[in-house]
Amino acid sequence: MLFGWRLREPQSLTSGYGLLAGALLASFSLLAAWRNNLTQRPSWQVETSRTARRAIDEAVAHVLMSILVCVGLAALTVIMANVMTEADGSADTLRDTPALVLTSVLVSLSTYLILSLVLIVNLLRDAYHQVNEADEKDARRSRNHDRQTR
């Protein structure tokens, strides 16, 4: 017990981190496919999607780092729940100094994970708007060209 808090269900946290790591891994493959589609655009569209490609590249880096953080958090949760306990096996008998260090690392990594997910969503939103804004401009230009040729 640290500051009156107990890790009652470490299995839930470990499962949650595992599920989040799996979802991030799946999102990595989607981002890679999206990046590939942007790379294969015609040459006249490549310049307009450069900022979107950079945003996707940065989001991919954060996704991969978040996967590693999830794995580390799952391992740290298992360590906190099992290794640092007394003989009776209850998670509330953690010793004070190791418990404080492990808890602060767990809270810090969890905070980083939450902030990186917010950053990933923001980057993907920016890339989405960049690509769609460029496509809308191209469609308007094409419609105007069609009207002028009639």
Rank of each mutant, 00 (worst) to 15 (best):
S27N: 09
N122I: 03
H145G: 14
T85W: 01
L30K: 13
L106H: 15
N144H: 09
L102D: 08
T97Q: 12
Y17W: 10
R141D: 10
L64C: 04
G16H: 05
A75H: 10
A55V: 07
N122L: 07
H129L: 12
L117R: 03
A74P: 01
A87Q: 04
M80E: 09
L109G: 14
T85M: 01
D146P: 00
S49M: 10
G89M: 03
A33M: 13
T48P: 09
T77A: 08
L117D: 02
A33N: 15
I56V: 04
S15W: 14
W44E: 14
L117K: 02
L109T: 12
V69R: 02
F28T: 11
R50G: 05
A74V: 01
A75S: 14
L119F: 00
A91L: 09
A61D: 11
R54T: 11
I114N: 05
W34K: 13
L113C: 01
R50D: 10
A75G: 14
L38N: 00
I56W: 02
D92E: 11
A99Q: 04
E47D: 13
L73K: 04
A81Y: 07
A21K: 07
S110W: 06
Y17M: 06
A134P: 06
E86G: 04
L68N: 14
S15C: 08
A33R: 11
L115F: 05
